[in-house]
Amino acid sequence: MKPVTFNVWRGDADGGAFATYETEISEGMVVLDAVHRIQAESAPDLAVRWNCKAGKCGSCSAEVNGAPRLMCMTRMDDMPDGEPVRVEPMKSFPLIRDLVTDVSWNFEVKKKIRPFKPRPPDADDGTWRMSQDDVDRVQEFRKCIECYLCQDVCHVLREHQLHDGFIGPRFFVHAAALEMHPLDTEDRVEELAATQGIGYCNITKCCTAVCPEHITITDNAIIPLKERVVDDLYDPIRRLFRVFRRKRT
């Protein structure tokens, strides 16, 4: 056991400040444990969102020493020795209270992305056939736990606050999972360019760096989607083909 100092953001939409707490840290503890200990010992009304405490649900997103992290997967023994630990809420979303932000925008964005639309079943019993090789790519995207740390770190949302015209890395991953799903027949490319702002992404890969599921967001999801946008919307022959295809369906 050793005492560690924490600077934790306390406040709401009207403002706030860092409050300082000291608590005992034992072997194997994560930042979320420390926050809970502070809550139990000295700040019972400290607001913190969490759930599974095993890195599987993506609820306890926050910024630890300035880095977007899941608090439940941030080990105290990885923190610099003898220095205070700074814990604050995500910056890309409106603050509700203390460490809890209003992430409802993300849920609204998802509703606007066209849902999965499968091709007719392959077999008479109504089932499909897909090879493991073909689903590997999509399964990587489907590992996403919707912690929104990628949205938090993305400068288009964080600094430029373009929430109205940009869906953010999380939903490019979602769109990629649908677009590259072997069974899907829907076309989302035009919207990705027109209203969902894929052009704003300038591939700085900040999102990939913070993803707790280690999804290679930029290389495997966003860049291939950007290529589809270029191919489908700006290649003159494909554009022509697109016009005909749309008329057919």
Partner: peptide
Amino acid sequence: VRELEAWGAVFDRTGDGRIL
């Protein structure tokens, strides 16, 4: 379970492409 696949779930596959 098959209904989930129709709604977009991607289960691991057998060698012949069915749900493992």
